[in-house]
Design a protein around this nucleic acid. Structure first.
Lengths: 216, 216
DNA sequence: ACTAAAATAGGTATATATACCTATTAGAAT
DNA sequence: ATTCTAATAGGTATATATACCTATTTTAGT
């Protein structure tokens, strides 16, 4: 298995990208580009016509007729032996998330160099998966966003946070009042104040706010 | 800047870990371990006594007196010039998330080899950040969990999903009825059925269910 | 000592949601 | 043909939430 050549199908609507990758792999015996397609549907048809020929699918995300993530889903569902490496120009969380949920085995950015590509191919064929180092800062920024949101939480008073937490636990105002040994009226006042502070108009909005800020 | 030695403080409650790292870096001119501490508080005191001496803090997460993440927060708040690389034995999402939220510049696992450590140090001092490749599969598994939850969503009928989506958008039953050209009564029936299917007893529960499954 | 904010609680309406019913129709599946 | 589910809608109560008020006490900050 180890020393067998990995047969690759490249799917990308930009022929130059395909040619570039082919060129990069041309001096490498381990990887051989045996097929190419300029849209997702063509790529799927090529695979379906002879599934055993392809060992790895190297695909772009945005392509005509069938997107790379959709292609990935279909391939993984019907031909699970084929590994999929998504090659994207999008460095946002959503794109990465979609790729992972489509069961892609790896994700690298188009501005990666030759080394990164070879590294990705090596890691995928040996370790099973590879995700570009470049996507980590993206997740990093997500978490930092959450940190800022947490600071926004300080607008709420301790008691308000307490009440909000119980609201999210599906307690009614009356039940919350009993639990906190205060009047139902007081709870309702907190609720009103929370509407203003959380900038929403109903309990539904409060729940969304609470979850967004990690109260549960 | 490039050819200056990076002065490192190691904080870890296991002396063997400290000695191991010192040994690994001993033959490397770029990195010099100039201080060490066995708990977070001691590490912070060492930094505070002479902040300019330290360029990089290499810290464990779980330590007595002051945890690595808390230490990181304090250092980043008061001595932002110091870069922080978190060295953890926990490979779970929460640990990584906490480290990032503490503004750590990097995160690697304790079972990483010498190469990974050197790579991390190089990337941090040059690129600013480094996060171990090992943490990606963790995030990967998080996303896959979400995918399974999405399949659970198929228990809901298309119309129910539609109604649920509008509920989460803070519309009342009456407003939803108008929007879908149906009776308010019908909307309320969908709501009741959603309670059963989502296993909750109020709209609050529905909102939590919806958000958990990506409806918004 | 003064001020501001937080937490408390009450009154009075109205709006909305929830808990039970029953019942019809359309479409899909067996 | 028949069975099942989804989607529709109505009746009748009750429970809960929401929108305005006012007002007191406590606590923290200047």
């Amino acid at each position: 298995m180890e020393n067998t050549t990995t047969h690759i199908l490249i799917a990308d609507d930009h022929q130059m990208v395909i040619d570039g990758i082919k060129s990069m792999l041309s001096h490498n015996k381990e990887y051989q580009v045996v097929a190419e397609a300029n849209n997702g549907q063509a790529a799927f048809d090529l695979i379906a016509s002879n599934p055993e020929r392809i060992k790895l699918l190297l695909t772009d995300i945005s392509m005509p007729l069938l997107s790379g993530t959709e292609l990935c889903k279909m391939v993984k569902a019907q031909f699970p032996h084929i590994q999929v490496l998504v090659l994207s120009m999008y460095n946002n969380v959503t794109a990465v998330k979609e790729a992972v949920m489509a069961e892609a085995d790896g994700y690298i950015l188009k501005n990666s160099g030759k080394e990164e590509l070879l590294n990705a191919l090596y890691r995928i064929t040996n370790d099973g998966t590879f995700f570009s180092q470049d996507i980590v800062p993206i997740i990093y920024s997500q978490y930092q966003k959450q940190k800022i949101q947490d600071e926004e939480l300080n607008m709420l008073s301790p008691r308000e946070k307490e009440v909000l937490s119980l609201i999210v636990k599906e307690l009614t105002s009356e039940e919350i009042a009993e639990k906190l040994f205060i009047s139902k009226k007081t709870v309702d006042n907190h609720r009103q104040n929370l509407f203003v502070k959380c900038n929403c108009k109903s309990t539904v909005g409060l729940v969304k706010y609470a979850i967004k800020h990690g109260i549960d």
